[in-house]
Amino acid sequence: MIEQTEHIEHTDAPENMKGKIWRTFWILLAFTVVDILLYFMLLSTHSMWKNALFILLGVVKAFYIVGIFMHMQFERKTLMYTIILPMIFVIFFIALMIIEGDFTLTSRL
């Protein structure tokens, strides 16, 4: 008979997790401020590059939130790919539809 005991599997958190958390907080804060500053600097320019830039900044922030806050950096690679691969396709889909919207605009004009 195998005895049923509750066993929790988890990857150990690295040393100095608190420091890592606060560092991530400041990075996220800095990126948000950069986002807002860039928005006002590029207020009168409208191009696909501007859209791409802001989405890229969003992805960088997402990288920190998922990696450190959600502990993904310290998980197994199998779990990482399970979650991240589909999301890469989704981001590709968002980019495609933004470009498609531009074509819709030109066909309306």
């Binding site: 968002i94 539809m97 919207g101």
Partner: peptide
């Protein structure tokens, strides 16, 4: 968000 991106850029 895909819907937003599409509608936003089609204006």
């Amino acid at each position: 968000l895909i819907a937003y991106g599409f509608i936003r850029t089609s204006f």
